[in-house]
Simulated assay, not measured.
Amino acid sequence: MVTANGGGDGADSAPRRGRPRSIETSNAILESAYALMASTGLAATTIDAVARHSGVSKMTIYKWWPSREALLIDAFLRHAAQMLPLPPASSGSPAARARRHAAAYAEALQGEFGKVQLAVISECISKTGSAELFYARYLQFRRDALVEMIAAGQNDGSILAEGPAEDLYDAIYGSLFYRYVFGIAPITPTYARNLVDLVLRPKA
């Protein structure tokens, strides 16, 4: 199966000249899937539609993705990785990096990114009864990385909040998503930064 960044099982044993085309084809599929989700909605983003839009055969798409839901999640994952990159350790303290990332997420929720994310999660729930597939293919890696960042801040003393780093992460991003889904209050970058400070209690 080809992963979101274009790699795949057995890729190392394939002729090197085949790699660029494989990556190019994978990216064309993922770009087409996301573009269709954003422009025409999830219902219209069928495998047939993605094949027509990308110029790639349905056989190839089914070979690389086990289901339509997996393809939609990977298309969203690729876009999210470009739009919301995980903050590198060299870009400041853990709390400062958490503020920037949460603020960027809050801003992204206001555009097509938020609508596509919610639609993909809803699709997973309607098809499988849970959002476990979305967590496994998209959220788990990003959550683990940010939890590790928060834990590093607790260890070096720059984050004063106690308790498991996993719970602190969930308190921040769970609150942002909850407010977005139910329209409880406007989600702004400023609100997100203040929420990070409230939850993490960074050392002054």
Rank of each mutant, 00 (worst) to 15 (best):
V2P: 13
R21H: 09
E24G: 14
N27H: 12
E31V: 07
A35R: 15
G41C: 07
G41M: 04
G41K: 01
L42V: 12
A44H: 06
A51W: 04
R52I: 12
S67M: 08
E69A: 15
D74P: 00
R78S: 08
A80L: 02
Q82V: 02
L84H: 06
S91M: 14
P94C: 08
A96V: 11
A98Q: 09
R100D: 15
H101S: 08
A108Q: 04
G114P: 03
K115A: 14
I121T: 09
S122M: 05
E123W: 02
C124R: 01
I125L: 07
I125H: 07
S126Q: 14
K127M: 08
T128M: 05
E132W: 10
L133A: 12
L133R: 12
F134H: 11
Y135Q: 10
Y138C: 14
A152W: 04
E162F: 00
P164T: 00
Y169I: 04
S175L: 10
L176W: 04
R179G: 10
F182M: 11
F182G: 09
G183D: 07
A185I: 04
A185K: 13
I187M: 13
T188W: 07
P189K: 02
A192M: 02
A192N: 03
R193Y: 00
N194W: 05
L195Q: 03
L198Q: 11
L198F: 13
V199I: 15
L200N: 01
A204P: 11
